Computed example of a mutant assay.
Amino acid sequence: MSAAYEFDDDPVTETVSTVAPELEDETEAAAERPLYFPNAEQWVQNWLLPHYRRKLSSGRRWDPEWWRYEEVGTILEALWESWEQMRWEDAMTAVAWYRDYFWPVMDRLTAEDGPFWDYDPPRSTDVPPLWEATPAPNGWF
């Protein structure tokens, strides 16, 4: 066997970083970038709604209690977190964020068949029921 392939049986005793040096810089930079909004609710109220104004009609729905919908809460929290990262970048990143994330997500959430499809006060203000699901057989997954 070649000397290049021989391994030392002694364990490593020095501390080894599991993060690449360029990622350590990014981690430090992220720590120095405080959040502008403390949570998704504040972001929705103070940034999202003022920046996304559309005519509400039979083709577009919005529930002021958006946080009651698991899907909406989850996606808007992710959108807020992506916004918090994007705001530190350049103008091209902001334009791409609007194009690739903000407009498509908001158009989908408020679409006629989106999560608010049944929101039609005073007829209905309830969150639609969950679809039924049958548990998978043992060992299926």
Rank of each mutant, 00 (worst) to 15 (best):
A29C: 01
P128I: 03
Y5E: 08
D25R: 11
E6R: 09
T125S: 10
E14V: 10
A78H: 04
L79D: 03
T110K: 01
V19Y: 07
R54L: 13
W88Y: 13
A96T: 10
W131E: 14
N138H: 05
Y119N: 03
V12F: 06
R54A: 09
Y52W: 14
Y101H: 12
T13E: 12
D118Y: 00
V19K: 09
G59I: 05
E22N: 11
L48K: 00
P128C: 02
P34V: 04
D9M: 04
L109T: 04
N138L: 11
E22G: 04
L49I: 14
G73C: 06
K55A: 08
P21A: 11
T15K: 13
D10R: 14
N138E: 14
A133V: 09
S17P: 02
R33A: 10
E77K: 05
W103A: 11
M1K: 01
R60K: 07
A133K: 08
P64Y: 02
A4Q: 09
D118F: 01
F116T: 05
P129G: 12
Y119F: 15
Y52S: 10
R60W: 05
L49Q: 10
W88E: 12
W117P: 00
N138M: 06
T18G: 12
Q45F: 09
S124P: 00
T110V: 06
R99P: 01
A3R: 08
P38A: 13
D90P: 03
A78Q: 09
Y36H: 08
P115V: 08
G139I: 09
Y36K: 11
A96S: 11
L23P: 00
G114F: 02
T74D: 09
E112Q: 13
W103M: 07
R61G: 00
Q42G: 05
D90N: 14
A94L: 12
E14H: 08
W103R: 11
D126T: 11
S17C: 06
E26N: 11
A94W: 07
D113A: 05
V16I: 15
A4L: 12
R123Q: 10
W97T: 04
V12Q: 08
T125A: 07
N46S: 12
S82M: 14
A30G: 07
W47C: 09
E89D: 14
R99L: 06
P50R: 03
Q45A: 13
M86T: 15
V105R: 02
E84P: 03
F7K: 14
P137M: 03
R60D: 00
D8N: 15
E81Q: 15
I75A: 04
H51M: 14
P34S: 09
M86N: 14
A96D: 10
S82W: 01
V12S: 07
D25I: 10
W97E: 01
D63W: 03
E26T: 13
A136G: 02
V95T: 15
D10E: 15
A136Q: 10
W117D: 04
A136W: 04
T13D: 10
P128D: 01
Y5W: 10
P135I: 04
V105Y: 02
M92Q: 15
L35V: 07
R61Y: 05
D25P: 00
F7Y: 13
I75L: 11
G73T: 08
M92P: 00
W97Y: 05
P104A: 06
W140E: 09
E14T: 10
L23M: 13
